[in-house]
Each structure stands twice: as C-alpha cells, then as structure tokens.
Design a protein around this nucleic acid. Structure first.
Length: 271
DNA sequence: CCCGATTCCTGTAGGC
DNA sequence: TGCCTACAGGAATCGG
C-alpha cells in the first residue's frame, strides 16, 4: 500500500536511472488500470527524453517532451528497474525501455493505480490543481488545519485524509498520527482546538518523515529490488493492531469503521 | 459546499 | 484440501 513515503522513496530510487534517459520503446500489456492508459501514450513519449522526477501528493510526475507522465501506484502498484531480459511477471502492465538499457516496469495486481498523460502544464490538470498542501512543507500548520476545519462536522480522521485539505495522509498514517496526538479519530473536525491541531500537525510530520527515512534505507536500491514495502518495518502503534494492547497504557485497542474503512485507536489515550 | 456511500480490482486470510 | 466470503484501500463520482 504505497502511501506518500513509498512514492517519495520510489522517486528517489528511480531518479538516478531515469532522468535524462530517452524512452526507446513503450509496451502496454494491460491498459485497464484505475483509468485507462491513453492509446496514444506510447507514440507521445517514444524517442523523448525524461526530465526531473517530481512527486506531488502520491502522484509521480515524469516530464517527457511537451507534457508529463502521471503515475499513481494505487494500493498495490510498484515501479522497478530491471534488465529487459528479466521474465515478465503476472501483473507487469507497462514497460518503458530506456536508452541506458534498463527497463522500467509497472507492476500492479489490484490495478488501482494509473498512468496518464498530461499535456502542457501539469498544474492545469484539475486533479493536481485541487490538491491541498504537502504535509512536510511549511504550508501545513496547526493554524491552517484549524481554519480549514471550522464548521466541519466530519470525523477528524476523514478530514485529514481529504486530499483537498492535506495530501499524502492515508489510512495508516492518519491512524498513527491521531494516536501520537492523543485525538479520538471520531471527533468532529470543527470542534478540535488550535493547540490540538498543532500537536496533530507535528504528529503527521513525524510519522511521515520517519517512514521516508525507513523507506530510504530499505528501498534505496530499486535496481533489481522487488520493491518490498519499507513501512512495514516501522513500529506501527495502532494500525493493524485491533484488540492488541496499547503500547502506552495496555488498554486493548478498539477498531471501528469511519468512512468505510477500519480505524484502530486507543480508547484511553485518544480523547 | 459538505459528507457519506459506492465503485474499481485481486491476493490473502479465515471459517467450515 | 478446497471452497467460499470478507477484507484491504485511494480517490473519483454520485446522491442527499
């Protein structure tokens, strides 16, 4: 389940091997991803040079010629660099043959990911333009979240997972950050104080920065690596631990559903 | 505008 | 051992 740290780790791993390379050939084996891969995409990028990779939210932007490839890893997608002779696996949907001899392969069993073409300025695309601030930028502050949340009745967990509010906070990191900040995930977003949003901001930044660090050490080598998810290595405090003891107070962690997804929290530490 | 429900997909885990 | 079902979830879209 690639969240922001995994996408950032992917960007860092791929950049040295893809930037300034020419896309010699494109193979699309399965165009039916979250959105269909445009038929004209191979013709648009073959023979073109790849520029500097940029991550925005959980999107990976790859500038090529007069536009950008927009990758999204969904929840089971991965990008890896292999020798073109490496046998193609089930669910290897797209392959870019690069001028340095590497093949960039997109693998995605659940096909929740996407590969789109953005002509011209990527910021003109609605799905990019409508995104909230990056969580690790100075734009995310307690005051910002406090202001954005006034009058909103949705649960705070759903609020911080809203990409129009702040990007890159998926179920895992939302759960972990709310635990660190001591906030009950069910609380109405509009009824949480400024100091608590300041604590929540610090918690979001802490869990994401830590995960990038871990990913950076375990996923550094994308060449020939299988891209095993690095964040599993980190100590999760609540996510996936329903019924187990809270690491702080030993109270059994509770699991509820918020916005159609599992939310685990400590009923004693989070209020 | 806001918010909750639904949808896409397949591998895995748990029950029997 | 094998069949069946529930669950995992990012983000667009729709309905109230």
């Amino acid at each position: 389940m690639p969240e922001l740290p995994e996408v950032e780790t992917t960007r860092r791993g791929l950049a040295p091997y893809t930037e300034q390379q020419v896309v010699e050939h494109v193979t699309v084996r399965q165009p039916k991803l979250r959105w269909p891969i445009p038929d004209e995409l191979p013709a648009l990028i073959e023979g073109q040079r790849i520029g500097t990779l940029v991550r925005r939210a959980k999107y990976l932007l790859m500038p090529v010629a007069e536009g950008h490839l927009l990758w999204h890893l969904g929840m089971s997608g991965s990008l890896r660099l292999v020798s073109p002779e490496t046998p193609v696996r089930k669910h290897d949907h797209v392959e870019l043959l690069l001028s340095n001899g590497y093949a960039l392969r997109y693998h995605d069993p659940r096909r929740f990911g996407a590969l789109l073409w953005l002509q011209g300025d990527p910021m003109a695309d609605q799905r990019i333009a409508s995104l909230g601030p990056e969580p690790l930028s100075a734009a995310l502050t307690g005051a910002y979240l406090y202001e954005q949340s006034r009058g909103r009745k949705a649960a705070v967990k759903n609020f911080i997972m809203d990409n129009a509010v702040v990007v890159g906070v998926g179920n895992i990191y939302a759960s972990e950050a709310l635990f660190l900040a001591g906030i009950d995930p069910r609380r109405a977003a509009g009824r949480i104080s400024l100091p608590r949003y300041e604590a929540l901001t610090r918690a979001i930044q802490q869990v994401l920065a830590q995960a990038i660090e871990v990913g950076g050490t375990t996923l550094r080598d994308f060449v020939g690596s299988d891209g095993a998810a690095g964040y599993f290595a980190q100590q999760l405090r609540v996510y996936g631990r329903a019924g187990e003891a809270c690491r702080v107070c030993q109270t059994p962690l509770k699991s509820i559903r918020l916005g159609q997804r599992a939310s685990v929290f400590c009923p004693h530490c989070q209020r």
